[in-house]
Design a protein around this nucleic acid. Sequence first.
DNA 1: TGTTCTCGGTTACCAAAGGGTACCGAGGCA
DNA 2: TGCCTCGGTACCCTTTGGTAACCGAGAACA
Lengths: 112, 112
Amino acid sequence: MQDPCQAREVLGIVGDKWALLIVRMLKDGPRRFTELKRAIDGISQRMLTATLRDLERDGILTRTVHNVMPPHVSYELTPMGRTLREATAPLLEWSITHLAHIDAARAAYGNR
Amino acid sequence: MQDPCQAREVLGIVGDKWALLIVRMLKDGPRRFTELKRAIDGISQRMLTATLRDLERDGILTRTVHNVMPPHVSYELTPMGRTLREATAPLLEWSITHLAHIDAARAAYGNR
DNA sequence: TGTTCTCGGTTACCAAAGGGTACCGAGGCA
DNA sequence: TGCCTCGGTACCCTTTGGTAACCGAGAACA
């Protein structure tokens, strides 16, 4: 690995909280907009739209519109997106397994 | 893995652009404030201070002050911090190896 | 016939967070 | 006397992001 600082801009996108969760949601195949919105607890419609746009622009996922009414739009990982999913999986798992440790550390820090 | 949405708050910290780079910088042992500032290209003094505080609060690293003049403060990963470092390494590597792909995808997106 | 629901957004508004720059203090050195 | 260092804070502007309202066309309901 050479200069990791070159990766700063990329990290600003793939390191994004919402982007990580969206990529994870798509691991088992395409998902619809509303499906993602319901599954990713706490994301606002605005942020979901914006993050999906960014990920589409960067070639992480594809957006497919089926011209029916009511609208049907599905999102799916590209091959590059699937490699990203593999790269982010350890961080996701780490976050979940260390939730309690972080809470404990934070409580201890507050009581100093 | 249960509900990944529980990890949202944690992801907001460990998924942070600067936090990822700082954790990586500390992989080979303690580093001083100014050392980090010089090594992480583009980070401002303010953001370095703030991010280090957050990581210290969350038990990712320790801050050690040596009472001399000029000041000497060193930062070092905790055991939990080292496990985080391992979890983030794949994402860092991915970012660097896919920099060019992302640029290409972004250029193609702009020309549609 | 009119009302209301759906999906996948967009937009305006506003508060909160992010982040750059200037400045600080105390000792060392010329 | 003046200027350098390190680590950090105060100030202030910019960006981010949540909320809520609106949209359009079909479908279900009454």
